[in-house]
Computed example of a mutant assay.
Amino acid sequence: MGQAVRERGRSVGGLLREWRERRRLSQLALAHEAEISPRHLSFVETGRARPSREMVLRLAEHLNVPLRDRNHLLLAAGYAPAYPQAALDSPELRRVRAAVRLVLRAHEPWPAVAVDRLWRLVDANAAVPVLTAGAAPHLLRPPVNALRLTLHPEGLAPRVVNLGQWRTHVLGRLRRQAALTADADLAALHDELSGYPGGTPGPAPAEPAPGDVVVPLRLRHGGGELHLLSTVSTFGTPLDVTVAELSIETFLPADEATAEALRGAVG
């Protein structure tokens, strides 16, 4: 069941209050940031005042509400959605697809993937098979979920040397993403992945070993080991829901041996 269906019939005031509490803001703090009176904000949240379209968007902006959920707020208030949601393969997003493809190719021979809000693979560059080698075919059939592929016992997990540590990192990131977006689908994905075996639990990213600055991905490859660092990129100031939910994750070599191995594998 989709998020919009779950929220059908909810009042805009109640939804705004939930977002404010999720962001751990008092009515006074949000009113100050949005430059409105605390009394008016209270009236909006309790349903005693109907917010204008501009007010809904202003509050949503200050609450850092995702574009998908800003549309839900507008619908709850009786207004039309403000942000389009075109399919990634639609003509409207042709330039976006081209930009994603350009970025992915530019990162070669370093592996890079483009994923949607649920971590479903929408594109990948020629270096990604280095990471996915040996994964079960059913995990590679579309739609491929990048996080499921990583932690599944028939996916990358048997090749991840620091599986406990990497699993802690992935689940922590997914848990924070689900909490920030209030996305039930992400929460369900977190619950699924949490049930996978994960090796000996590693140190949480908040408690790194001396000298560590990021959590590495250490992946068995041939007779050696790849040491990779992950970076995530998103589109700045997106105005379309689909574009706002796209991200590109790149795995960079953490040492020269890994760089050489990737160059050799991709050619």
Results as ranks from 00 to 15, higher is better:
residue 7 E to L: 12
residue 120 R to M: 06
residue 52 S to T: 14
residue 21 E to Q: 15
residue 192 E to I: 07
residue 47 G to C: 11
residue 59 L to K: 03
residue 160 V to R: 05
residue 215 V to Q: 06
residue 247 S to Q: 15
residue 114 A to S: 00
residue 131 L to T: 10
residue 59 L to M: 08
residue 115 V to K: 09
residue 219 L to K: 04
residue 7 E to K: 11
residue 76 A to L: 01
residue 133 A to P: 00
residue 263 R to W: 02
residue 32 H to S: 10
residue 36 I to Q: 07
residue 176 R to I: 01
residue 40 H to D: 00
residue 190 H to A: 09
residue 42 S to R: 13
residue 131 L to R: 11
residue 110 W to P: 02
residue 8 R to W: 07
residue 59 L to D: 12
residue 204 A to K: 12
residue 16 L to C: 03
residue 225 E to D: 10
residue 4 A to L: 09
residue 227 H to Y: 13
residue 100 V to I: 15
residue 195 G to P: 09
residue 209 A to M: 11
residue 34 A to W: 12
residue 13 G to D: 13
residue 166 W to G: 02
residue 219 L to H: 10
residue 97 R to H: 04
residue 20 R to G: 11
residue 169 H to W: 09
residue 185 D to Y: 04
residue 75 L to F: 04
residue 206 A to Y: 05
residue 196 Y to A: 00
residue 195 G to C: 03
residue 213 V to I: 11
residue 161 V to D: 14
residue 178 A to N: 10
residue 259 A to D: 11
residue 13 G to I: 08
residue 158 P to W: 00
residue 23 R to K: 05
residue 146 A to N: 13
residue 53 R to Y: 00
residue 69 D to Y: 10
residue 174 L to P: 06
residue 1 M to P: 09
residue 230 S to E: 14
residue 136 A to K: 04
residue 1 M to S: 01
residue 61 E to F: 06
residue 72 H to K: 01
residue 78 G to V: 09
residue 129 P to T: 09
residue 261 A to F: 02
residue 147 L to C: 03
residue 103 V to R: 05
residue 66 P to R: 00
residue 175 R to K: 14
residue 242 T to R: 12
residue 85 Q to E: 14
residue 265 A to R: 09
residue 99 A to R: 12
residue 142 P to T: 00
residue 104 L to P: 10
residue 144 V to T: 06
residue 25 L to H: 10
residue 45 E to T: 04
residue 69 D to I: 00
residue 187 A to E: 15
residue 15 L to I: 00
residue 21 E to K: 13
residue 18 E to Q: 15
residue 251 F to P: 04
residue 113 V to Q: 13
residue 223 G to R: 15
residue 114 A to R: 11
residue 16 L to I: 11
